[in-house]
Design a protein around this nucleic acid. Structure first.
Lengths: 157, 157
DNA sequence: GCATCTGAGTTGGCAATCCAAACTTAGAGT
DNA sequence: ACTCTAAGTTTGGATTGCCAACTCAGATGC
C-alpha cells in the first residue's frame, strides 16, 4: 500500500496545481501582490493575450482568490480593480518558494533580479521547511507520507 | 519607478514557472519525490498522455532537475529510472508550500488526504515564511521589493 | 453635440498542445 | 517461434492558447 495506490488527483498539490498550473496564473498573482490592479496594466506588463487574462482572472475570482471591485477615483470614471482575497494572500509562501528556487537555480550571470524585504526590519524574506518540533528540513532529510481520512484509494479496473 | 517598470520575464518566479508552469510538471516532480521512478508507473499513476510525459521528463532532465539512469535489477532486463537531482530536491519547499495551501483552502469535506512527517521525530512538516532576523511573515506583513543587479528595466517603445 | 480617447473586455482565425490509441523496438520468458 | 513487457514514438482529431481586430460605455476635447 504505497503512494501509487492513492488517487493522484485528490492530493493538495494537485488541487492547488489545478488553479496555478499554467504558464500565466502564477504571474498574475505575483503582479497582484506587487500592486498591479487593473486589467490593462496586467495585460501590458505580463504581455499576456487579453482573452487569456480575462479567463485567468475569472478563474481566480471563481476560486475565491481574487476579488473584482468597481472603484472610482475622484473626478474619474468608474473602473475595475482586482485585489487578492485573504485566501489569495496565502499564496505568498508559494510565490516566495518559487522565487527562492529561481534565485538559486535559474538566475542569470547578474544574479537574482529582486529581493523581498521585511518592511519593518529591512531583512530579506525567505521560506523555510521545518517540522512542528522545529527541526529544519533539508533536501536529504527523510520524510514520510501519512494517509489521512481525506485520502482516496485508486479503484483497480 | 515601480514594479511594472521591470521586465516581468526576468523574475525568479517567472523563470521557475517556465519549468513548472503547466498542469503536469509539478505532479511529475511530486511523484518522483514519492518514489515513483519508472515511466509506466508515472504514466499510469498520473493518467498523463505518454507523449506528454516523455516531453516533460526530457525537459526536467535538460534543466538538470532530474537524472535519467539505466539500471538493472538481478535477473531482470535493463530499465530506465528517473531520479531527482540535488537541484530537483530543492523543489521540496515549493511542493510543501503548494500542499499547505491546498490543505487549507482546497481540501474536501474529509479534510486533507495526506500529511508529510519528519521520519526522525514524527512531527508534521510545513513551510514557514520569515525574514532573516527571524520575524514570522504572515499575510498582512508589509514587504517591499528591492531591485538587484540582475533586474532588467523594460524598454519603452 | 459630435468626434475621440481609454479601459475593459469579446470575437474570430490560426497555431501550438493535448489526448487516446496504435505502432515500434528490444530483451525475457515459455 | 511466439508472446509479453517496458519505454517510448507516431498519428489524427479535439482543445486550448495566441494575436489582432472589434465592441461598448463613460470621459474628454473642440
Amino acid at each position: 500500500m504505497g503512494w501509487s495506490d492513492y488517487d493522484s488527483s485528490s492530493c493538495s498539490i494537485a488541487r492547488t496545481a489545478e488553479v496555478l498550473g499554467d504558464r500565466w496564473t502564477v504571474l498574475v498573482v505575483r503582479d497582484l501582490f506587487n500592486g498591479v490592479r487593473r486589467f490593462d496594466a496586467l495585460q501590458s506588463h505580463l504581455g499576456i493575450a487579453r482573452d487569456v487574462l480575462a479567463k485567468r482572472l475569472k478563474l481566480l475570482v471563481d476560486e475565491g482568490l481574487v476579488e473584482r471591485r468597481d472603484y472610482k477615483a475622484e473626478g474619474e470614471r468608474a473602473r475595475q480593480e482586482y485585489v487578492l482575497t485573504a485566501a489569495g494572500r496565502d499564496l505568498r509562501t508559494v510565490l516566495v518558494a518559487l522565487m527562492d528556487f529561481g534565485d538559486k537555480h535559474r538566475a542569470g550571470v547578474d544574479g537574482p533580479p529582486v529581493a523581498l524585504h521585511h518592511r519593518d526590519c529591512g531583512e530579506a524574506i525567505h521560506t523555510h521547511l521545518t517540522c512542528d518540533a522545529g527541526h529544519p528540513i533539508d533536501t536529504t532529510t527523510r520524510a514520510e507520507l501519512i494517509p489521512l481520512p481525506g485520502a482516496r484509494l485508486l479503484v483497480q479496473a
